[in-house]
Design a protein around this nucleic acid. Structure first.
Length: 499
RNA sequence: GGGCGCAUAGCUCAGUUGGCAGAGCAACUGGCUUUUAACCAGUAGGUCCCAGGUUCGAGCCCUGGUGCGCUCACCA
């Protein structure tokens, strides 16, 4: 005997609106079957049944066999002594036919079962007169009574806020959502295999950093009580991974969540996933090869082709990608040389670039002009190479092109996907660049020098190439999703006020 | 943070010039053994996001707020 549902024990929406389902719950508790049994069943994925069921004209090997499926029941079509419904599971769905003459015991209980309930069915696999593969149920088990009703059946959840806030509904009620996250999972697993096969070791470095380094971004701050010290959520794993290169691990990568206390947009989430990779005896040209080969490999594995569609445009992800220098692109889109300070300053004024940025120094300013004028035109995929050295505090200067760093970023659809360089391994040079950063007025640079990192370099880091790839953005492109929120299961949202 | 837009039944959405709060789906009752967005007949369901204001009268107009989306700024 189940106790009646007490007021205040369920979500307010359910208590107000779902009296019918709550009454059914009472009945299930009093008379059975139990609404929330403890044990699951051994079920066959519906996709396997569809595959081995065949068509009415060409029946498959499982036709006539007794099978069991489990999942969410949706969309009942009641004919009086016959009910059709869909049973949805992770792999797909299959029709179930419920007939009075096969279910004598269950039949009087049928009204206690609703669309949205989690149910297991056992029965004989066959086809209907119209040729639909169907399980003719002889056994029906409630697995969990749904007290909240499913969304409207053919629009699903359309309100994007509801989709993000209640992803646990969106995943089965909106078409294509589960597939995006399956593709995301596959992307991660293929990426791991790709680099493992190239001799890389997957490592885990700290999320809590005493100094927020390795990138320029405002960090989240937290506090450790026992140590009585502030810590920062990592903005990048870079400096730890390079310590491991000093440690002799030679090839390492990490797929980590990074945290940046900055704005949200269709391309930015405060926590996001980054692949970072470091390889001894390599430079940025090797990183370009890894990048284009990985991207091509992922597209081919996921789609069987290197052609993908994103935001209505087609892109060919076949390697090798185009390569263009930063200075060359700057000239193309601004009509002046990046080193022509007077002309570039005039451009910045024209573009209404804020005076605060102007104070951060010439090369930061030129960088702003580049971002404002060039990036949106980079449909790509294209590697932008050879960035001005002053905006690359962790990269090595190009021996052929003094004043510029051996660095590239990969752009696609105007979006930065990857960032890589030949790593700076001269400790004195690194120290000088850190000190310059600390002295700058930029609120996003670290407040103190990471002396321990310089110390690590003093033990000697071999020539090394490093690469970072934004996994969320890569998944956006591979799954044709316009917003980063659509490739994050639970994107960051403003907290809902208490109801 | 700025601009633009949206917020109405569990879900998807209408709502005219300011004049009784609407539809489809879901739910409930009845009918139906081959549907697949089943069908037929009926019933019930509302803090019109919140708080003020204007008005005889506000879902609609005004002010402020909240949430969400897009966009700009920000994000090397």
């Amino acid at each position: 005997m189940g106790a009646p549902v007490q007021a205040g024990t369920l979500a307010p929406m359910t208590e107000i609106a779902q009296k019918d389902r709550l009454e059914k719950l009472e009945k299930l508790r009093a008379e059975g079957p139990p609404p929330f049994p403890s044990r699951g069943v051994l079920a066959t994925p519906t996709a396997e049944l569809v595959e081995k069921g065949g068509t009415a004209e060409a029946p498959g090997p499982l036709i006539g066999e007794t099978v069991t499926v489990a999942g969410r029941m949706r969309d009942l079509r009641d004919f009086g002594k016959l009910i059709f419904t869909w049973l949805n599971d992770k792999s797909g769905r299959i029709q179930v036919g419920l007939q009075k003459n096969r279910l004598a015991e269950w039949w009087p209980k049928r009204k206690l079962f609703d669309s949205g309930d989690l149910v297991a069915f056992t029965g004989e696999l066959g086809h209907t007169q119209k040729g639909e593969l169907t399980i003719w149920a002889t056994e029906v088990t409630m697995q969990a009574k749904a007290l909240a009703p499913p969304p409207e059946k053919w629009h699903g959840l359309a309100d994007v806020e509801q989709r993000y806030r209640r992803r646990y509904v969106d995943l089965w009620a909106s078409e294509g959502v589960r597939e995006v996250f399956e593709a995301r999972s596959k992307t991660l697993s293929l990426t791991r295999r790709f680099f493992e096969e190239r001799g890389f070791l997957e490592v885990e470095t700290p999320t809590l950093h005493p100094i927020a380094g390795g990138a320029t971004a405002r960090p989240f701050v937290t506090h450790h009580n026992a140590l009585d010290s502030d810590l920062y959520l990592r903005i990048a794993p870079e400096l730890y991974l390079k310590r491991l290169i000093v440690g002799g691990l030679e090839r390492v990568f990490e797929i980590s969540r990074n945290f940046r206390n900055e704005g949200l947009s269709t391309r930015h989430n405060p926590e996001f996933t980054m692949l970072e990779l470091y390889q001894a005896q390599a430079d940025y040209t090797h990183m370009m090869e890894h990048t284009e080969e990985l991207v091509q490999h992922l597209a081919t594995e996921l789609h069987g082709t290197t052609e993908v569609e994103f935001r209505g445009e087609r892109y060919d992800l076949r390697a090798p990608f185009q390569r263009k220098t930063y200075a060359e692109l700057f000239r193309e889109h601004n009509g002046c040389e990046i080193e022509d300070e007077a002309a570039v300053r005039a451009r910045a004024t024209e573009l209404k670039i804020s005076s605060e940025v102007q104070e951060l120094g010439y090369w930061r300013l030129a960088g702003e002009v580049f971002e404002a004028t060039v990036e949106e035109h980079l449909t790509g995929p294209v590697f932008v190479t050879d960035y001005p050295l002053p905006i690359c505090p962790l990269a090595k200067e190009s021996p052929e092109n003094p004043g510029y760093a051996e660095r590239f970023e990969l752009f696609l659809a105007g979006m930065e996907l990857a960032n890589a360089f030949t790593e700076l391994n001269d400790p004195a040079d690194q120290m000088a660049r850190f000190e310059e950063q600390v002295a700058s007025k930029d609120p996003e640079t670290p407040g103190e020098v990471d002396v321990d990192y310089v110390q690590a370099l003093e033990y000697g880091m071999p020539p090394t190439g490093g690469l970072g790839i934004g996994i969320d953005r890569l998944v956006m492109i591979l799954t044709n999703q316009d917003s980063i929120r659509d490739v994050l299961l639970f994107p960051t949202l403003r907290q809902k006020p208490a109801e």
